[in-house]
Write a protein that binds this DNA or RNA. Sequence first.
DNA 1: GCCGTTTTCGGCCCGACTGTTTTCAGTCG
Length: 578
Amino acid sequence: MARPNEEVEALLQEYADLLAISGGDAFKQRAYERAARAIGGYPQDVSKLDAKALKGIPGVGKSIADKIAEYLSTGHVAAIDETRSTVPPGVRELMTIPTLGPKRAMTLYRELDVASVDDLVTAVHEDRLGRLKGFGPKAADNILHGVELMRAAGGRILLGEALRIAEETVSGLVAATGVERCEYAGSVRRMKETIGDIDVLVAARDEDAEAIMRAFTELPGTAEIIVHGRKKTSVRTAKGLQIDLRVLPPVSWGAGLQYFTGSQPHNIRTRSIAVRKGLKLSEYGIFDTETGEQLHAGTEEEVYGRLDLPWIPPTLREDRGEVDAALRGELPDLVTQDDIRGDLHTHTDLTDGLATLEQMAEAAAARGYAYYAVTDHAPELRMQRMTSEKMLAQRDRVRALADRYGRRLRLLHGTELNIDPEGEVDWPADFLAGFDVCVASVHSHFGLDRAAQTRRLIRAAENPHVNIIGHPTTRKLGKRAGIDVDLDAFFAACARTGTAVEVNGHPERLDLRDEHILLARRHGVRFAIDSDAHAVSELDNLRFGVATAQRGWLTADEVINTWPLTRLRKFLRGPGRR
DNA sequence: GCCGTTTTCGGCCCGACTGTTTTCAGTCG
């Protein structure tokens, strides 16, 4: 069900992991990792490329191109299948636990016969780790904590992947005979950061239901049918994700979409409003309680209208005050993708990006942006090997390229600085003054205590050259909790100093998250919604940032990259700056 | 396994931190 590029990326990454576990050549492993990343971020569909074009992808040589071609034509790669047979899939799974890498995963398997996360938890509880070389007194705690973090995600998948599957399911169904309307609902429509299962709704006449259900179960990617009926069918994909399809009569569409979009607390609020008006709201429609008569409400707008409410955007439907705000006529005018005039945090292949400056700029222009900032990493992130010279050379290239685009697209030269434990950033003030925009982010020292984290973030915000604090909590969904920070103090500092906080749209980050945005806007903070793109295709991650911003009730005026360039420039410069 | 204005072999992403050790392997960004 995944797009070919993602399938191939996953395959190559798996092979790289297997090579690491089985202790092969580390450089070979890295070559596969690099190729995996390059394929994942490659703008063209790899299944449409011939061998020569495949070899043209950076990091893909003859051997890997051949394996990709083999996979695309047969669905298998002999060499990878062979390696798989020597390492149980559960051993690779162990590597997803923080603090466990390939070496210790292999040790666990070899010495203790641990071949799954469950096996490992059992082994820890049975105190069998103590005797193992490389595993000391802290190891057990760290492993259990890591497993807990993973399980906190509860087998949920990230919004980005869920949305893709939901959209594919819908597009696979709209063509089926008798489908009058089809949309995904549930937490995907509300754009929650992680998704447990996917709800899809179809409006169709009863006599078409059976054929639609069959078409659903026959969609590619279905591994198992859980329940199969005329009104509801549930399947599980190969990756274990459940997808529910419900078929409703067209007259129930508005009520059904409203009901299945949720959230449950939001529905309780709307239904109780209905009750007070002598109405009954269910997934089948809105009814007069006394007569049982069904009132016409074919769309969500009409359903909310019957309750004397304006339509409430799905991203707000979490019972966080949206119903009361709607009753008062005070729903926020939410920021949308169309409001965004530019991206202020992106990378190129000068550091860890995959595409060139020219490719990224061209993609930004194609998206219709009015401005676009290139913000490659700064020297303190050692692995990127940035230098002042490289940065200045890039600036010359940006300026030259800017001349080519003229007024159509304003290119900004920026950087993503590193906030050190003291809150200092790379480069002295006079060098920083040369940038159009500076994002500053935490990339290390995640373990400092709350006071120290708060101090460093505030100090970074107070730096007159820092315009935006990037991914402020630095969490990674399902992998790492955010750093421990007094957010109120930090947001107050951002408001005071005119430093924007980022809503990072990378599906693994979504940082700030919705609840933190709600907190921040109470301080009068300004926001930047950025993609943090490391590839052309990742520019689209901005949509997840917009969704998260909506969930945080943000309006366009609070988001600096919806502003015209002149207003943005003024914000970046002062008052009190430079 | 990839790559090349150091060019067809010999490099390749470097440094910090953690928890383990007793001088350093493994993990991470």
